[in-house]
């Protein structure tokens, strides 16, 4: 077996670089000498900070993904999207209602949707984005919250939308409304929050705070989950 690392050629913002095959897009960036301060986060596919737009060789489609989860291929052309300057309305959760009126007031642009489905195609989380926008258009908050549940707010949907809708912010509103007004209240959760506030777990929390990363990680992965 040869020890030689197989390399592939990628185009980062139009500039050719040789990077190790099997790298993720983030690794490719860093290998090529870029220091990422924005457009990178947890590196585990959870935070949604590293939206990326890329095109594979021989494919006309511009694709969206998370730079920490997408592996480079030979001839790939790519760029990082560190931030989406999209509209974000301010609202008071205590003053809005979980129905169509809130959607009309805060996100009137959802009524510009043409059902092109470009948002769904762009979503790295495989969410039916168009479907949850349609649910919001109908005033179905619960359905929109459910469909958008896996959203990590990377912003690619909004960037590609021809109707300039800010899908991920509208989906967030739906989940907030659902959580506050529509979801069935859990007595167990309420009890546990009270226990924590009363200081019942003070000792355990303090222990965890002092733990090093390896130990904490081990504790996390071997935790017991009790289901009723």
């Amino acid at each position: 077996m040869s020890n030689k690392q197989e390399m592939v050629k990628v185009f980062i913002m139009g500039e050719a670089h040789e990077v190790p095959a099997g790298s993720t897009i983030i690794m490719a960036f860093e290998y090529a000498g870029y220091q990422l301060k924005k457009g990178v986060g947890c590196r585990e596919g959870f935070c949604g900070a590293c939206a990326t737009v890329y095109r594979e060789k021989g494919n006309y489609k511009l694709q969206g993904g998370l730079a920490c989860q997408t592996v480079v291929s030979d001839g790939m052309s790519l760029v990082q999207i560190p931030f989406v300057p999209a509209e974000k309305p301010v609202y008071d959760m205590d003053k809005i209602t979980p129905d169509i009126n809130t959607i009309k007031e805060l996100f009137p642009t959802v009524f510009r949707c043409v059902s092109c489905n470009t948002c769904t195609k762009a979503c790295p989380q495989d969410i039916q984005v168009m479907d949850y926008i349609q649910a919001l258009k109908q005033g179905n908050i619960a359905k929109a919250a459910d469909l958008s549940f896996d959203c990590i707010r990377c912003g690619l949907c909004a960037l590609r939308c021809p109707a300039e809708i800010v899908q991920y912010n509208a989906g967030t509103l739906a989940r907030r409304l659902y959580g506050k007004y529509l979801a069935k209240k859990s007595p167990e959760l309420k009890n546990r929050v009270e226990e924590i506030n009363d200081g019942k777990y003070k000792k355990e929390i303090q222990e965890m705070k002092e733990m090093d990363r390896t130990k904490l990680s081990e504790k996390y992965y071997t935790r017991e989950i009790k289901l009723k």
Binding site: C113, V114, S115, M130, D131, Q134, K137, Q138
Partner: peptide, 8 residues
Amino acid sequence: LPRWNCCG
């Protein structure tokens, strides 16, 4: 209709 969308 399942998964219907606004007609425009």
